[in-house]
Computed example of a mutant assay.
Amino acid sequence: MDVHVLNTTTFRWTKHPVSDLPYFENDDILPYKRYGHTAVVYGDKVYIWGGRNDIASDGVLFCFDTTWHCWTAPKTTGNIPLPRDGHTACLWKHYMIIFGGYEEETDSFAESVYALDLKKMDWSYIRTEGKKVD
């Protein structure tokens, strides 16, 4: 999967190099090209989740390390959301919050909110009635 960077001074996009150096235990991880995914930046890492290609939607978290220029697929635990596309995501403190999207497995649009603790790599389902995330 190509990574492009926007120069906010010239408003030109350039392709970002991806290293072929081994990176931890996941040195062969490369996410497939997709659309309908979301991305957040936390520290020096870009996390992408969800989306789909022409075959299926995806529920695997991928991480691009901007220091090492490598992709990994961190293992996550907890209440992992169903794969989806067309959802939204934002970063709040050290949480990646996702909302909605189309779930292929249930053939419906989700109204759920999930939070991924990026320090613990643990997913939580957030009730929209007001469960508080620290």
Rank of each mutant, 00 (worst) to 15 (best):
M1T: 07
V3Q: 04
H4G: 06
V5D: 01
T8P: 07
T8M: 14
T9S: 11
F11Y: 13
K15Q: 13
P17V: 09
P17A: 07
Y23W: 12
D27C: 14
K33E: 10
Y35K: 02
V40R: 03
V40T: 07
G43K: 10
D44T: 11
I48R: 00
I48T: 05
R52N: 13
I55A: 15
A56R: 14
D58N: 15
V60A: 07
F64D: 06
D65K: 09
D65I: 04
W68G: 10
H69Q: 13
W71T: 02
P74V: 13
P74Y: 06
K75P: 08
T77V: 09
T77S: 15
T77M: 10
G78A: 05
N79K: 09
P81Y: 00
P83C: 05
D85F: 00
G86M: 00
A89N: 02
W92V: 09
K93C: 05
Y95R: 00
Y95I: 04
I98M: 00
F99S: 04
G100H: 02
G100C: 09
E105P: 04
T106P: 03
D107I: 03
S112G: 00
V113C: 11
L116C: 04
L116W: 07
L118K: 02
K119T: 10
M121V: 07
Y125D: 06
T128N: 02
D134Q: 07
